[in-house]
Computed example of a mutant assay.
Amino acid sequence: MSSVLFDVPGPKARTRNVYLSIITAIVVVGIIAFILYRFAQTGQFTAEKWQIFRFPLVQQTIVTSIGATLGAFGTAAVGSLVVGVILAFGRLADRRWISVPCYWFTELFRAVPLLILMMIIYYGLPSLGVEGITPFTAVVVGLVLYNGSVLAEVFRAGIESLPRGQREAGLAVGMTKAQVQVSILLPQAVRAMMPVIIAQLVVILKDTALGFIVTYNEILFQATYFGSQVQYGSPVVPALMVAGVIYVGLCLILAGVAKWLERRLNRSTRVAKAKTALARVDLAEP
């Protein structure tokens, strides 16, 4: 049995896929084993390399850096979503004096690397006379400008992928274009593009690590500081391993929360459709 897009593999193909899976697993396990072996050979697992993390002050500093990372992420995530929606609506505007600037704004800040944005904001603007630029401001503004531009294209693509009949039906009942976009099109676009939005939020969380370039007190900044302590054996690799584990944990928690939210949205949508169908049945009965 076959479909238009996918052919069910035969016996030889299934055998070949099994062999390829086994070979891939062996290669991955071998690479991990080699890395762990080199870590052991260079003394990265010795007590001397890890003793710095036993001090309460160091643990407290790590917790503080996690809070700073989450603070920058939360502010940047909200700002990016707001800017993304505004730019998406601007791109879809009928007036060219609105759509054209939004287009160039989106293309410009999507093209500029995020690290360069942060460095321009933190190191470049003060040289032009702009005062009061803190590391937190540089990190958040850079994240909002870049990710807001990316999310603008996500929202725009989601809105334009919806059937035109929904837009026309909203306009036919007397709604303005703005009301149609906000009340009808945007909620559906968010549901349709939720996996992409979740992925971009994870990117925002990971990109907070670039804040160490502008001396923002986040996880990677503290990890590099701890790794430079010569009196504790310069534990660069252990410090980066700790930072990596923290980032992985935060990303998994964020993905879990987003998946839970997505399931709730889908469930509420199904419930609303079921209620609508029951109402139609009741109206149809004599």
Results as ranks from 00 to 15, higher is better:
253 I>D: 01
29 V>D: 00
179 Q>E: 15
223 A>V: 11
67 G>E: 09
138 A>H: 08
88 A>Q: 04
157 A>T: 07
110 R>I: 06
110 R>C: 05
35 I>S: 07
241 M>N: 01
40 A>F: 09
9 P>A: 12
89 F>D: 11
98 I>Q: 04
174 G>E: 10
97 W>S: 09
45 F>D: 10
244 G>K: 01
229 Q>G: 04
63 V>S: 09
24 T>K: 07
231 Q>H: 05
69 T>Q: 11
248 V>C: 05
6 F>S: 11
225 Y>G: 12
67 G>T: 02
5 L>S: 09
196 V>T: 15
193 M>D: 05
198 I>H: 00
174 G>I: 06
153 E>Y: 06
86 I>Q: 08
140 V>P: 11
6 F>D: 11
169 A>G: 01
133 I>V: 14
48 E>Y: 11
88 A>N: 05
7 D>P: 00
219 I>P: 09
234 S>K: 07
187 P>A: 12
15 T>N: 12
17 N>Q: 10
220 L>G: 02
191 R>C: 12
93 A>K: 02
232 Y>F: 15
54 R>G: 09
181 Q>A: 15
63 V>T: 10
191 R>G: 08
174 G>F: 07
96 R>P: 02
199 A>E: 02
32 I>Q: 03
50 W>R: 15
7 D>L: 09
211 G>Y: 07
59 Q>K: 11
93 A>R: 01
173 V>P: 00
174 G>S: 04
134 T>Q: 04
129 G>L: 02
195 P>A: 13
286 P>W: 09
246 I>N: 04
196 V>D: 05
198 I>M: 07
259 K>W: 08
234 S>V: 01
29 V>A: 14
148 G>I: 13
110 R>V: 06
34 F>P: 00
220 L>A: 04
96 R>G: 02
170 G>N: 04
34 F>E: 08
125 L>R: 07
131 E>G: 05
20 L>C: 00
51 Q>D: 14
252 L>M: 09
286 P>E: 12
12 K>E: 10
164 R>Q: 12
211 G>N: 08
270 R>A: 14
103 Y>T: 13
133 I>D: 03
1 M>V: 12
251 C>H: 02
41 Q>H: 00
206 K>T: 10
242 V>E: 01
6 F>Y: 15
96 R>W: 09
173 V>M: 07
84 G>V: 03
234 S>G: 03
4 V>M: 05
218 E>A: 06
41 Q>K: 06
191 R>H: 14
256 G>N: 10
210 L>Q: 12
211 G>I: 08
273 K>F: 11
124 G>I: 08
193 M>H: 03
147 N>R: 10
128 L>W: 03
87 L>Q: 08
75 T>N: 07
235 P>D: 07
9 P>F: 11
204 I>A: 12
216 Y>E: 02
182 V>I: 14
228 S>K: 15
81 L>G: 00
